[in-house]
């Protein structure tokens, strides 16, 4: 299986984590008021996932194209999130966990 779904879902999970690091979105998605420490954890997690996604891009494509596609993948991953947040905020987090898991399973099927 192609590694593309994994890259995309990692990007989506990373951006969701970054959104969780913002008070407004955190409340909308999880329904709880976060404290500063939680926000910081999500910020680190988000960036870590995005770095992982970049590693995936560099694996999938040669260096220059891989770096360009990293930016493209952030765009791609951000689009569904932007639409989920106003319409189905509660769905965003389960997807962020589920999609990378599914993509990993897909790698071995």
């Amino acid at each position: 299986m192609t590694v593309l779904p994994l890259i995309g879902s990692l990007g989506y999970a990373g951006l969701t984590a970054l959104a969780l690091a913002m008070k407004r979105h955190h409340e909308a998605m999880l329904g709880a008021k976060p404290d500063e420490r939680r926000l910081r954890v999500f910020r680190v997690l988000g960036w870590a996932l995005l770095v992982l996604m970049m590693a995936g891009c560099l694996y999938r494509w040669p260096t220059a194209l891989g770096l360009s596609m990293t930016l493209g993948m952030v765009t791609l991953a951000g689009l569904p999130l932007v639409f989920l947040l106003p319409y189905r905020p509660r769905l965003a987090v389960p997807l962020a966990v589920g999609l990378p898991v599914l993509a990993c399973v897909g790698l071995f099927v």
């Binding site: 959104a19 913002m22 979105h25 951000g78 932007v82 639409f83 947040l85 106003p86 319409y87």
Partner: peptide, 9 residues
């Protein structure tokens, strides 16, 4: 950056 994910339909 603050409005990165903001869309209010």
């Amino acid at each position: 950056f603050k409005d990165f994910f903001t869309f209010r339909p």
